[in-house]
Design a protein around this nucleic acid. Structure first.
Length: 243
DNA sequence: TATAATGTTTGAAC
DNA sequence: AGTTCAAACATTAT
């Protein structure tokens, strides 16, 4: 379910509930659900893969992890983790992590670290990358403190598009190339958003789950790479390794 | 049917 | 005390 752009889509879908009062809240989330009832939604926000429902004095943080889902104005069979009912409809969350954040939500997040945010700061990402020269780029791209919102699909597509081997060391990638990669992380995330909106995301995958390289027709290598051991799809011929 | 997959947190082990 | 790593969690499509 996740990756930053998907959470941005969710945010768009719930705009009908902004400013509305929660008339009923239920679910098996291990938080004080009672507290939500009667509160007005001040705003829906997102930071990377975090979906945030902001109320006066606190925020409900939803993280969908690997298997989380949601339904708007409908329900699934399975037990609901958190359900918010408004006069004009409802939002239901399943198999997600739910946490309460106290006080001003702005004190909890650096918005400029989110690739989908208006305030995204590529130079800050570069600074943060320069602090971890020994890390492999496949791990660094998944670091939410550097590229908040980037997930495994975006990782693979970005690396293929900028022709960088996933097992390259961050510190060995030339500065110009690293800047391109940071730029692509944002650009691809926005394309992901539009493709996902139109239910055509997979159609545009160039490397992820592919078997042949579109550029050179050689096999796409599938390997669990880095400390994170997430699967990478890459072309050894077209994607340069900076060891 | 067993496996693997868009992910993160936790706590044991070093 | 700081870092590392595997386990835990959980759902669904193939």
């Amino acid at each position: 379910m996740p990756e930053g752009p998907t959470v941005v889509l969710l945010k768009e879908e719930v705009q009908q509930f902004t400013g509305k009062r929660v008339i009923a809240a239920e679910g098996n989330a291990k938080v004080d659900i009672e507290r939500i009832r009667g509160q007005e939604v001040i705003a829906f926000k997102s930071w990377g893969k975090h979906f945030l429902v902001c109320f006066e004095g606190f925020t409900v943080r939803i993280h969908f992890l690997m298997f989380g889902t949601y339904r708007i104005n409908e329900r699934k069979e399975s037990p609901v983790r958190l359900s918010l009912t408004f006069k004009n409809g409802e939002i239901n969350f399943y198999t997600c992590s739910v946490k309460m954040l106290e006080g001003d939500v702005n004190t909890h997040y650096d918005w400029s670290g989110d690739v989908m945010n208006d305030t995204w700061d590529p130079e800050k990402a570069e600074t943060r990358l320069n602090k971890v020269p020994e890390k492999l780029i496949c791990d660094a791209l998944l670091e939410q403190d550097i590229f908040s919102g980037v997930g495994n699909i975006i990782k693979n597509e970005v690396l293929y598009r900028v022709c960088v081997h996933p097992e390259s060391k961050v510190g060995k990638i030339p500065e110009a190339k690293l800047k391109m990669l940071i730029e692509e992380a944002r650009q691809y995330s926005f394309r992901f958003l539009e493709w996902k909106r139109n239910f055509e995301l997979k159609k545009h995958w160039l490397a992820h789950t592919k078997t042949l390289c579109l550029r050179c027709n050689l096999p796409i290598i599938r390997k669990h790479t880095g400390v994170k051991k997430r699967r990478s799809f890459f072309c050894e011929n077209c994607q340069l390794l900076y060891p």
